[in-house]
Design a protein around this nucleic acid. Structure first.
Length: 838
RNA sequence: GCGAGAGUGGUGGAAUUGGUAUACACGCUAGUCUUAGGAACUAGUACUUCGGUUUAAGGGUUCGAGUCCCUUCUCUCGCACCA
């Protein structure tokens, strides 16, 4: 009995594919346009921990799809690379002095080894790394395009600042108000930043979502993130000042109910509006809010706080004096940082008005007493002079017309989307290719000086002043102005990690081009990406940023499509089993024993625990390392199990027992090929039918990415073959072809054992004969009043009368219909008959 | 609070989109075998008082509902004082 020698087989074929460049892709012009496909994975950050089980899930899915397409005559671009700038390598450098490139390179080598050990059919000649100067040359070049178009600007903006690490942090590096690295409470600090004007593209980013084949959930998240809202700007004259206060409102029709105004503590008019009497109180309030974190400020459950400024505004519609308050429930970052408060019809305003004793005026007919609770539903206007009796829509239109006529307001649109803070005070990122000249201002580094490479530094630690470690390299910072030649200084901020991933899918198309970022002919050949598979965690970051950059490139005529990723599929997360006590606390896997099927206890205490699914974590001891399984059971098993677990898009738990089932399946296939009699003989009718049905199901399910059910069908087919004494060679050839996208190593070996030349990946995908998939005789289900009562066999496509005749003669049916009146007979061809009786 | 999605055996999950619920796999039970291997093979495995009953709970539409509609509950994810 020979055991399935996966280790030997897998090494052998990986070597073959590499040496023969089996998966090298070229832009073959003879392939018609509709036969060119670009299948892309989200490239990984090469962390020190190596691949986790989530990586092979998405990567296997695209690999199966790519191999399937190639066998169906498509020219497929399927590349891989590394998102190689990133904080872990830099933090490690701060701790140990090891250059981030050294760490990153080592990790990339490890990732490459792991990816190759899974047998993915990437064209490795197209590999890229975002930290490679040949690559970031063009990241800098694209940044220059943004800069030249006026889409990059400098501003002083408050950012998250860790006083212990002496550095600014990205939002994603702040966990619950504390520094992810050292746990220190994060503060706000004003730092000079480079900002990209993504808001200029808000409308197009929103509208073009409709043209994409993306999961509805991701589109919804992007829509919410962009957060377009339509309303009006209203100008309020200020009492005692020759100035106006502008607010944004979606309900300008409730203007008659505005009883006070609120401006954010950061609003530029705060000091001007604060009267002498209120000065002390306002200053104390500003000091208090400054120390609150974003989390504390936006916590819905907290009490409203605020302070009266001492000044008044004039309501433009009725000339009423209304007090101006300062409160942190109004955000400076949305709208104008000022609101008109209508406490009768807004929960937040109502709560604030109650706390500070401000008047509440009903302007929409309410079912409740607005003095005791806010009415936030619709209603007909009251107490609103010339709006009384109107509905919401008509009142809004009439009010906007009035405001425009009297020049105290106009229609306005607002977005939640803010401009993208693009600079980081870090070393390990792309240098921003700009020079600050005292005479010429900020000037771009000329194209022939790109790439502007990172200099060597002795210390990776950021300077204490909120600047990047690059400020400590005077010979790099001090330069000449490219325009006038005067002494000038380089920009020392670097780009965020998102920069490199904004356009990497374009570089794969032309990865070695030293003259331009992409050859337009090649770009036209492959773009857009036909299938993009990755996790859902990038729904509003990478996937929004890259759409933005792509649209800028499109406007410059540098790419031919409006959108980069035509179809997006989110793979589900692979979770793990964990065990939960009655009090909902989780118990590590190694502290639990199974006493009976489905019964688990905590070993030490004997307390009953229930099996639940949870994210993999070190503390729960339920982390699965794919390397272990590849070593012990082979890459084909890992690939196939991850596809067999369930639908690609669902999150599902890793069950090692289930994994063994797939391993046994491959072992069984191996034994059939190596131990059974294989003869070149005709298939009997039943086997031929099953084979054709299998080809059909596997083809259709692979096409639609329903890999789990395709695998089920292969198992059904193999279970049947396993019963045979002598196996027809044809069936095994077909099996090898069907398996080859899923388990390419064993399929190549089978193909060779059956006497064929490699590589099976170059063979044509098998086709099925629809006629052979049909059964001559079909089972017809007989229902009486919708309940299953009998089954009869009928020839395929028997006509209605024939079927009914047979049903009436059926003994069991007779028993159920005897003495009753037949009201109706429904016949579904080849499936069922339903007789309704009384 | 708002938005999106999901609830099917002991477990992961099928169900040609309104037509035989539980395919395939795991686990379990019994047996055969022995190179004792996370082996292989055979049979069984939703519940049942054997009439029937079952797709989170209840109601509706229909000849017929896991699938469509309404109500409720639970879970997951995202956003969250966005004026």
């Amino acid at each position: 009995m020979s055991k399935y020698p996966f280790n030997e087989i897998e090494k052998k074929w990986q070597k073959y594919w590499e040496e023969n460049k089996t998966f090298r892709t070229i832009e073959d012009e003879s392939v018609p346009e509709e036969k060119r496909k670009y299948v892309l994975d989200m490239f990984p950050y090469p962390s020190g921990a190596g691949l986790h089980v989530g990586h092979p899930e998405g990567y296997t899915a695209t690999d199966i799809y790519s191999r399937y397409l190639r066998m169906n005559g498509y020219n497929v671009l399927h590349p891989m690379g590394f998102d190689a700038f990133g904080l872990p390598a830099e933090n490690y450098a701060i701790k140990t002095g090891t250059h981030p490139y050294t760490t990153t390179k080592k990790n990339m080598e490890n990732f490459t080894r792991q990816l190759k050990s899974l047998g993915f059919s990437y064209d490795w000649d197209r590999e890229i790394a975002t930290c490679d100067p040949e690559y970031y040359h063009w990241t800098q070049w694209i940044f220059k395009k943004l800069f030249e178009k006026g889409l990059a600007y400098e501003a002083s903006t408050p950012i998250n600042w860790c006083p212990s690490c002496k550095t600014g942090l990205a939002n994603e590096e702040v966990k619950e108000g504390h520094c992810e690295r050292c746990g220190t409470k994060v503060e706000k600090k004003n730092i000079r930043q480079w900002i990209l004007k993504i808001t200029a593209y808000a409308d197009r980013l929103l509208e073009d979502l409709d043209t994409l084949d993306w999961p509805e959930s991701v589109k919804t998240m992007q829509r919410n993130w962009i957060g377009k809202s339509e309303g009006a700007a209203v100008f309020f004259k200020l009492e005692n000042f020759d100035d106006t206060l502008e607010v944004y409102t979606t309900r300008c029709d409730t203007l008659f109910g505005a009883t006070y105004m609120v401006i954010a503590p950061e609003h530029p008019l705060v000091s001007k509006l604060t009267t002498k009497e209120q000065k002390a109180a306002v200053e104390k309030y500003l000091e208090d809010t400054k120390h609150k974190s974003d989390l504390e400020r936006t916590d819905l459950a907290k009490d409203k706080t605020g302070v009266f400024s001492g000044s008044y505004a004039i309501n433009p519609v009725n000339g009423e004096r209304i007090p101006i308050w300062i409160a942190d429930y109004v955000l400076i970052s949305y709208g104008t940082g000022a609101i008109m408060a209508v406490p009768a019809h807004d929960d937040r305003d109502w709560e604030f008005a109650k706390k500070f004793g401000l008047p509440i005026i009903e302007v929409l007919k309410s079912d409740v007493d607005v003095q005791t609770q806010a009415w936030t539903e619709d209603g007909i206007h009251v107490n609103s002079q010339w709006l009384d009796g109107l509905n919401k829509e008509d009142a809004i239109n009439k009010m906007i017309a009035w405001l425009e006529e009297h020049k105290c307001g106009h229609k306005a649109v607002n977005y939640k989307l803010r401009d993208w803070i693009f600079s980081r005070q870090r070393y390990w990122g792309e240098p921003i290719p700009l020079v600050h000249c005292p005479k010429c201002g900020t000037v771009a580094v000329p194209d022939d000086e790109l790439p502007l490479t990172l200099p060597e530094v002795t210390k990776y630690e950021p300077s204490g002043t909120g600047e990047s470690p690059l400020v400590n390299v005077p010979e790099w910072v001090n330069t000449k102005c490219p325009v006038c030649g005067a002494d000038a200084k380089r920009e020392t901020n670097t780009m965020p990690q998102w920069a490199g991933s904004c356009w990497y899918y374009l570089r794969y198309i032309d990865p070695k081009n030293n003259d331009r970022f992409i050859d337009p002919e090649k770009e036209k050949y492959w773009m857009p990406v036909d299938l993009y598979v990755g996790g859902t965690e990038h729904a509003v970051l990478h996937l929004l940023y890259s759409r933005f950059w792509h649209k800028v490139l499109y406007d410059l005529g540098l790419v031919s499509t409006k959108e980069p990723f035509q179809r997006l599929v989110n793979q589900g997360m692979i979770t793990s089993f964990a065990y939960q006590k009655k009090n909902k606390s989780l118990v590590p896997v190694d502290k639990v024993s199974e006493t009976a099927p489905g019964k688990f206890i905590e070993t030490e205490t004997g307390e009953e625990v229930t099996q639940v699914t949870a994210k993999m974590s070190k503390s729960l001891k339920n982390v699965i390392n794919p390397d272990d399984f590849i070593r012990d059971y082979g890459a084909d098993s890992v690939r196939m199990y991850e596809m067999f677990m369930g639908p690609l898009t669902e999150s599902k738990p890793w069950a090692t027992a289930g994994f063994m089932g797939v391993y046994r399946f491959l072992d069984r296939v191996w034994r059939i090929v190596t131990e059974k009699n294989i003869e070149d003989k005709e298939l009997d009718k039943e086997l031929d039918k099953l084979m054709n049905k299998t080809i059909k199901k596997v083809s259709q399910d692979t096409e639609t990415l329903n890999f789990n059910t395709a695998i089920s069908q292969m198992m059904v087919f193999v279970n049947e073959l396993n019963k045979l004494e002598t196996v027809p060679k044809k069936t095994l050839e077909i099996l090898a072809l069907l398996m080859s996208p899923y388990t390419p190593h064993i399929a190549e070996e089978m193909w060779a054992l059956l006497g064929h030349e490699p590589s099976i990946s170059k063979e044509k995908w098998p086709s099925w004969d629809e006629k052979k998939c049909l059964d001559d005789e079909v089972e017809i289900v007989v229902q009486i009043n919708g309940k299953l009562r009998s089954r009869i066999m009928m020839p395929h496509n028997a006509d209605k009368e024939e079927v009914l005749k047979a049903v009436r003669n059926d003994e069991k049916t007779k028993q159920w219909t005897e003495g009753k009146t037949i009201v109706k007979e429904i016949v579904v061809p080849n499936k069922l008959v339903n007789i309704v009786v009384k």
